[in-house]
Write a protein that binds this DNA or RNA. Structure first.
Lengths: 117, 117
DNA sequence: TCGTCATATGAAACAGGCTTCAGATGTGGA
DNA sequence: TCCACATCTGAAGCCTGTTTCATATGACGA
């Protein structure tokens, strides 16, 4: 079936792992989500949004990024449906729009506050 | 104190966010952990280890990486204390060694299995 | 001790991502 | 209609990270 690889030491365990291993597509998606959280700037943006919506200029101030960099980052997050926009005149208010990501953020903050490594 | 920025729209909320925002160092660490999970190859390696230790060659087979790439990836994960090694003769058995990362992996898998997006 | 095997390492190539700069879009007020 | 403002966008430059190739280390068996 899916044999034909190099020398395998623990064939039984390898087989078991393969069964539970998610598919390439799911794995790629998951890696991408983690990737979105792997940048300090984006992480700050998202953490800022945990408690509610904020406009781009406030997000820029809070994150320490330039407004252009902020906009680029938000565009990326928007493309992945992690945040959503509400337009009000010339302002744009962003908010968290992904329960999964919110969970990851909560977990990360909890761990940050609780652990001294 | 920490004033002197550009125009701020919602000063109150900005102040509140700033209070809860983790420090630069914690933020960087957290981003790095997510970064370790942001590569499909490393993700496969770690998922393979969820159920127990495996040697390098089996990890290479399961992850689809070359043995060299696998070794490089494991070295990186080892440097961040995410995995640990047990040497047995010329073999090296790796295992998950970070409860936080294990939690993130479980959460990711659960989400992968449960959600169709 | 010699050769082979499992793993580790270094350097280089290559790709991808983030930031900046300049300019575009679109809104609100005079 | 014209200008100022908030945000968005595109292209370029730079930096980082991942892979491959070649080689090194260290252990086992003859």
């Amino acid at each position: 079936m899916d044999a034909c690889e190099a020398r395998i030491v623990d064939a039984e365990r390898v087989a078991a792992v393969r069964v539970r291993m998610p598919g390439d597509s799911d794995l790629k998606d998951t890696a991408e989500v983690f990737g979105l959280l792997s940048d300090p700037g984006r992480l700050r943006l998202l953490l800022a949004l945990v408690e509610g919506e904020l406009c781009v200029c406030d997000l820029a101030v809070v994150s320490g990024l330039s407004e252009s960099a902020t906009s680029h980052a938000l565009r990326l997050l928007r493309a992945h449906r992690v945040v959503s926009v509400r337009r009000a005149g010339r302002m744009a208010y962003y908010s968290l729009d992904d329960a999964h990501v919110r969970m990851l953020l909560d977990l990360a903050v909890a761990h940050t506050e609780h652990v001294r490594d």
